[in-house]
Design a binder for these strands. Sequence first.
RNA 1: GCCCACGUAGCUCAGGCGGUAGAGCACCUCCUUGGUAAGGAUGAGGUCACCAGUUCAAAUCUGGUCGUGGGCUCCA
Length: 816
Amino acid sequence: MPYQDIEKKWQSRWRDAAIFKTPDDPGEDKYYLMEMFAYPSGDVHIGHFRNYSIGDLVWRYMKMRGKNIMHPFGWDSFGLPAEQAAIKHKIHPGEWTEKNIATGKSTLQALGMSFDWDREIATSRPYYYKWTQWVFVQLYKMGLAYQKEAAVNWCPECNTVLANEQVVGGCCWRHDDTPVERKFLKQWFFKTTAYAQRLLDDLDKLEHWSDALKNIQRYWIGRSEGANIKFFIAETGDELPIFTTRPDTVYGVTFMAIAPEAELMKKLVEVCPNREAVENYIRESSLKSEIERVAEDREKDGVPTGLHVRNPFNGEDVPLFVADYVLAGYGSGAVMAVPAHDQRDFEFARKYNIDIKVVINPEGAILDADEMTEAFTEHGIMTNSAQFDDMPSEEAKSKIVDFGEENGFAERAIQFRLRDWLISRQRYWGAPIPIIHCKTCGEVPVPEESLPVVLPHVEDFLPKGRSPLADVHEFIDTTCPKCGEPARRDADTMDTYVCSSWYELRYLDPHNDSAPFDIEEAKKWMPVDFYIGGIEHATSHLLYFRFIAKALFDLGWLPVDEPVVKMFNHGMVCDEHGDKMSKSKGNVISPIVLAKEHGVDVSRTAMLFFAPPGHEISWNEDGMKGAERFLRKVDNLITADIDRTAVACSIDGLFERDAELFKALNRTIKAVTDDIEGMAYNTAIARLMEFMNIVTPEDMTNSRIAFTIADSLTKLLAPFAPHLAEELNERLGHKDFVVNREWPAFDESVIAHDTVEIGVQVNGEVRGAREISPDAAQDEAVASALEVSNIARNIEGKRIVKVIYVPGRILNIIAK
RNA sequence: GCCCACGUAGCUCAGGCGGUAGAGCACCUCCUUGGUAAGGAUGAGGUCACCAGUUCAAAUCUGGUCGUGGGCUCCA
């Protein structure tokens, strides 16, 4: 039967039998399997095909292992591309999105993917985003959603702000040649920093996440231990707190630096003697992009404010500079500068002829500030530091903080690199932020019973630098839920990462009208046992996902505080030259075309065979041939007339060829099972290919275990080529689906080989090999080895002084 | 620049707590065959990136060098 017909036949039978349906009561054997859902742009692409093929393989294997599985699917259907495409094609984003969802879904179904479509969700549908808004409101009530005016990332191309996680190398994640600008705006944030410590600590619980991924998150969260020290503006007495990880260098402070956008700067600019120069500097640096400011070759610059800062430790006054190498968003936005012991401060000091004061000497040496060519940043021995002199600097670090704490101007502190998550977007196609701004009551969350705040249908959603919703009066104008007076809705929509930060929970209970999900369902299914998706979301989605789960856990809505037990990151799919596939390069391969030309089973077997699932693959058409030949071989081997009584479940009574086949089969089952468990799908397929090189069509008519072989092989094939496996299973006379049958077992005791070929070395050089029993005695092994002429020749005329014999592995004869 | 992976046959990858270098694909040769861009059987192909060390024995362990990929990019 042509493969297209086989595919259609089984896909429709699977559908009729509802085999992908999630069981109601999964019990102990529950298995929540999830792949990252898709953004519906056009059709699913080859990367999706890889992602979902891995998931489908896992579903089929786990099903045969007796698991009760939930395997849902959905669409991350809010977001910018819908607007852009809509503008281009003159069609509403909603319409465009739904059309793509329909296309994508039909493709996934044609690919035979084992999704439970009854649980399908789309984040842009009101009954999904109603609950996204509900999540927002809960976070608001917990104090985890707040508004602040801050210097934020702005993409001039998208015409919207971006979260820190959406800035890649100083550019917009969507426009990698558009430097992000800085704007001062009042925006909504989620307080991810409140969970920084837990997000970090709990990484240790995630045994089944790769170290690579966890390291990326650790680095992104970026915990630093140090101290907050209260400096003072000498002229005004205002506090200037700073954070430092090097309190041991505090006696070496020779100037202070503050970021142009720092909160404190707003006030200081009013009082500083060099006001004009400072204002100019602030203006100039605000025009610079992040890229320009961070450029490696750029010299650090700044201007003196004319103000001075008093060091509480020694009472010294040092000049305060405004300098844009200082980050506004980290700590207080100001730093103490110790040129002798910090490279950045050193460069700045040299440029502006600021004093360099050594307070730590390397052990056994004395530094001379005038001679230094770079900062000394290691640990050493304290000097010029009052009562801390001569102490090892590591010790002084804590002593100095103690001293500061006793005197009330320092305290131990932890800082994180992680920033709060900026979630407002000045775009149309997203979930409206459920907040109403009232003149008298301030910001008021939309009452839960009034959700969803429905995104109005508008014709003009072109981005203009502020939310398109701001001009939609029917939407914006409302009344305050508290006082009933006229009020205005928040015009911004939420970052789409908010939508995807909790979707695993909506899958639990996607049709629930009165709650985001039933907590009982969460108890049954959470956490997700296996989550599969690309690593590119390491510091965005996967961090937000963990954050929201923790927040909902704290709120009592979730029984677990980590959403995912095992995370797997698959590799990219590139073209045959190793280039990333993209529409602009015209090198994309469509899975639906592959399915038409080669069949689903061949395409996915080939893809799984190309490389381990974690590696990048280079697509090559030639590789298809191998998979095609392999599947055809299996198809030809397993015929309907195999004797159904040719069965054996043990090696007893089997001889010669039958025994050989039985052993080979058991080895294959073990190898394929181990490989699937270890996610080495490529080698699992290679094992099956090897087995196909052993077994012959003659065996199928002659062997006393022909049926056992055919039956086991069919089952082993099921996760890789599900349609063909069903067909073969039926051919063998089974009524039930192959995926409903049990994964084959193997007999460990027959797997060992009777004799092994061991290498024979003379003086460490391999000179030959002997086939002997793995438990042969040493004398026996040596005698056998001497029968090999090449070995005998090498020993001739010499005396055997030593024999190293490891049974079953090696024989090494040392002769002199 | 810092951190993390990785470097094995033409290709994609196994192996690796030291003990004869493996698979599949591709390739060579032969056989079969009027549905053939098919089937079968054989075979060739590697100084395991490089250098040094430990050892009876190193692809495997240790140190260094080079190369590839990824993360971070002034986080004080």
